[in-house]
Amino acid sequence: MPTYDYQCRQCQYRFEAKHRISDPQPCCTKCGGACSKLILTAPATHGVMAAGREQAIHALQAQHSNNAHRHGPSCSCCRH
């Protein structure tokens, strides 16, 4: 079941609620007021999707090669 983020229109309290997409929006868990649905972050991915995302991130990052380094032996520009 998906998790949704809500913010109360009256007291501004933020909370999460798990329910079906077809269910009505819940009332505020603190004051009982009406709430608005928030979209705060992208959903987390797990398993195969996460592995593909990690591979894509690494493929887009600049590749450092020791052969391309042209500074002297005491240079510390590439050391972390």
Rank of each mutant, 00 (worst) to 15 (best):
C31I: 01
L38D: 04
D5G: 03
K37A: 12
A59P: 00
T29C: 05
P43T: 02
A34T: 14
D23V: 07
S22I: 14
K18L: 06
E16T: 12
Q55A: 11
Q61E: 15
G32Y: 01
L40W: 05
S22Q: 13
P24Y: 03
L40K: 06
C31Q: 07
Q61N: 13
T45L: 01
Y6D: 00
G52L: 11
V48P: 00
T29K: 13
Q63L: 15
G47N: 07
T45P: 01
G52Q: 12
H19W: 01
E16R: 11
E16H: 10
G32S: 08
G32E: 08
M49W: 05
C8P: 00
G32N: 03
C35R: 03
Y4N: 06
E16Y: 05
E54A: 13
R53I: 09
C35G: 03
A62H: 14
H46E: 07
Q12I: 02
K30E: 05
T41G: 09
I39M: 10
A44R: 08
G52W: 07
A59C: 04
H64V: 15
A34Y: 07
H58S: 15
T41D: 14
P43E: 12
E54L: 10
Q7N: 00
S22M: 12
Q61V: 12
Q61C: 14
P24T: 10
A51K: 12
I57W: 04
A51N: 08
Q12H: 03
K18S: 14
I57M: 07
Y4V: 02
T45Y: 01
Y4H: 05
Q55I: 06
D5N: 07
Q12W: 03
C8E: 02
A51W: 06
C28Q: 04
S36Y: 02
Y13S: 09
P26L: 03
I21G: 13
K30I: 00
S36K: 10
Q61T: 14
C27V: 08
C31E: 03
A17F: 02
A59D: 09
A51D: 11
H64F: 15
A17K: 06
M49E: 14
Y6H: 01
Q25F: 08
